[in-house]
Design a protein around this nucleic acid. Structure first.
Lengths: 158, 158
DNA sequence: AGTTATTAAATTGTACACAACCAATTTTTT
DNA sequence: AAAAAATTGGTTGTGTACAATTTAATAACT
């Protein structure tokens, strides 16, 4: 079995991979991950409807619920997102009254993002969503653990 | 061990999950998949630079290389994308001279997408990319197979 | 002190995604 | 045949993503 990075190639009596077979959708690893990512976001958005938040906004709320106030930079490091994505996203969250944005007095370059009371309270509603999404999943607990481990290995390039 | 869909909860002597722990980034399955998806796209775009295509455009090319000409609808079914995404994307590809778009005479509702010679030739360049991306991956062949199987199970909700 | 380098956000421009809606064209039903 | 339903692709509006550039502020250096 020969492996070309994101694509697995079987060379056996049963299955011989030709030059262009690595370009077939079914042989790809990347494509199903890309589809899975979008399906997850759609799944969440289905439940977010009433709360008027999106999946990336939910991610921002999660890091703030976990770590309290943070700079834009640190949120970006945590979520692997840059300021071009975060600045307008955070402005929308500010308009909704979920967070506040203030320049630090110590270092005027950085902007401190804080949860408002409304943003803190949202946690009570959001915590109900994951169990609902759970109903739709068919992986066993063991499979989920394996999947998490492999995806982390893929990301971290360990 | 209790599982709430996309989040795994360990309840043991060593590790007790509290109510809000399901909202911690590290306990999530969805978030790393979301990150992995974006990293894959960035990885591809790095190599696409010279060819002037994007990852979703590469996906369209793949289904066309594989199945020949297709309707917009069928491309959407294959890639899990709707017309709101595909129509402008295909128009950009038409402008670049990679594909042609023509309404069918038999059924005026459908639009047939065909590869141009330029689109066909691009395959020769693109086939070199996956092996290059392979260099950056650290999963074993066996791990890739397991990951592919689990992701497919996640998507298909089998 | 004054210049240079670095850093943090914001801005700009392009390209997805997708929900919601629409128009045109079949297809089905009555 | 006429009316209703379904299908196909397009349009609109909002919200990410991200590369590349800009601006402002701080740190480092001669």
């Amino acid at each position: 079995m020969v492996v070309y990075n994101l694509i697995t190639i079987f060379a056996s009596e049963k299955e011989i991979m030709m030059k262009y077979d690595i370009l077939k959708l079914n042989n790809q690893l990347c494509f199903p991950i890309y589809v899975a990512s979008r399906e997850i976001i759609q799944g969440y958005n289905k439940y977010f409807g009433d709360l008027d938040i999106t999946y990336p906004q939910y991610l921002v709320l999660m890091v703030l619920w976990e770590d309290g106030e943070m700079t834009v930079n640190n949120i970006g490091k945590r979520l692997h997102l840059d300021s071009g994505t975060l600045t307008p996203l955070l402005k929308r969250m500010e308009i909704k009254g979920l967070i506040s944005r203030n320049r630090c007095r110590q270092d005027e370059r950085t902007v401190r993002i804080c949860l408002t009371d409304k943003g803190k309270q949202l946690k009570e509603e959001v915590v109900k969503i994951p169990p609902q999404l759970a109903e739709e999943l068919t992986l066993s607990p063991e499979e989920i653990e394996v999947l998490k481990r492999l995806i982390h290995k893929l990301i971290n390039k360990e």
